[in-house]
């Protein structure tokens, strides 16, 4: 995608955010609505400026948005799955899975290293948060608590 097209989308998104914020804020009573409404208008105006500037500019140059698509997809997908699994499997199990599975998914082929590292790392986190600080972290769904 060229920088021109990117800026058209970017400006459009900001304009949309600004306009919807201004519309929502118009419903707030008195002084509490004036400020966010004004801000919404400013965001929208600047968004439209970026959009308009891009439309009027030349054909544009390519600007790389993502250096390596598959790896970004793997990382973000795994990270999203991890966050989704934290309340289900509990924090420690989900974290252990992430630390063990993500490196091979990114092409790392030294399983022993990964496993040892995962054990040490999750162990340290467990020591710090559950033993020293006694912070309750999400527990597995099958746990009573």
């Amino acid at each position: 995608m060229t920088d021109r097209r990117q800026d058209i989308v970017l400006g459009g998104v900001f304009a949309a955010i600004g306009i919807s914020a201004a519309v929502i804020a118009a419903g707030y009573p008195g002084a509490s609505g004036v400020y966010p409404m004004a801000l919404g208008c400013v965001v929208a105006a600047l968004g439209l400026l970026v959009l308009g500037r891009a439309v009027l500019s030349g054909p544009g140059k390519p600007r790389i948005l993502i250096d390596h698509g598959p790896r970004v997809a793997i990382t973000l997908g795994t990270a999203a799955a991890y966050l989704g699994l934290v309340p289900v499997l509990g924090f420690y199990l989900a974290s252990a899975l992430l630390v063990v599975l993500l490196p091979p998914a990114l092409g790392f082929r030294r399983p022993v290293f990964v496993l040892v590292n995962a054990a040490v790392f999750v162990g340290i986190v467990w020591l710090v948060f559950s033993i020293v600080l006694e912070k309750p972290l999400p527990t597995p769904f099958w746990s009573a608590y």
Binding site: V86, P103, V114, L133, L137
Partner: peptide
């Protein structure tokens, strides 16, 4: 000295635990 690919999940875990303990809620992770 750790390979970058191993740092990735470790930093993610630290981010998650750090954010979670602030308010103790899962929505903050998202």
């Amino acid at each position: 000295r750790l390979p970058g690919v191993m740092l990735v999940p470790m930093i993610l875990v630290l981010m998650a635990v750090g954010v979670y303990v602030i308010n103790g809620r899962v929505i903050d992770l998202w």
